[in-house]
Design a protein around this nucleic acid. Structure first.
Lengths: 103, 103
DNA sequence: GGGATCTACAACCATATGGTTGTAGATAAC
DNA sequence: GTTATCTACAACCATATGGTTGTAGATCCC
């Protein structure tokens, strides 16, 4: 998932498709690369669950999936929680032992 | 930055070093790979600003940088904000036009 | 001083990545 | 029916990635 978000074009595709539906070719027109390249990016995003595709006639509509974005956010929040835990423990040590950290 | 977070070993290193300080070799002992491999991961994380290194004698202490994690979180929050904007607009359309979406 | 440890970095390798072009199947438009 | 459009996928290429081993400079310990 982070890997899928690691590419700038893919992040942009997610942003666009969170804002509205786009066919793959409509997306491709917006980037200075071939249709096939954009198609691959969409496939990576789809495999990561960041977008979903829905057939509509001959075109395939791409929509961003906010639930997966939320899961990424939650994962990063857990990083911050670990950090807070460390800071809290440092506070406890200072509170328990007035001489903590000195010799 | 997302690229740096895209590797599982690197995410684990960030987690550990957010929780406490580790020398590079102390980190390396925890993973089933060579010291040099872990060193490279740390270098990638440092370049992305996700960890900082501080010399202490012959060892190099690695600390996670919560500020950068926060920036990643904020970026993802912006993704969700775009999504909310879309939903809000959809709500407005329905409110403005009772026949919206039908033929 | 001499040996052990920690780090840095280069060289190398297999595979993944991001891009290309080309071909082919469905669907829409005329 | 024929042509144009949208999509899928394969083949290919250059470069990046994640791993290895090896060498070498600092620092610590005896």
């Amino acid at each position: 998932m982070f890997h899928a978000l690691a590419d700038g074009t893919r992040r942009d595709i997610v942003l666009r498709t969170l804002d509205g539906e786009y066919s793959v070719s409509a997306l491709a027109r917006r980037y200075p690369m071939s249709f096939a390249a954009v198609q691959k990016h969409v496939a990576v995003l789809e495999a990561a669950g960041l977008v979903t595709k829905q057939r509509k006639g001959r075109e395939q509509l791409v929509r961003g999936n906010v639930d997966t974005v939320r899961r990424a956010t939650q994962l990063l929040d857990r990083f911050e929680a670990v950090w807070r835990g460390r800071i809290d423990r440092m506070g406890e040590i200072l509170a328990d032992d007035p001489n903590g950290g000195t010799r």
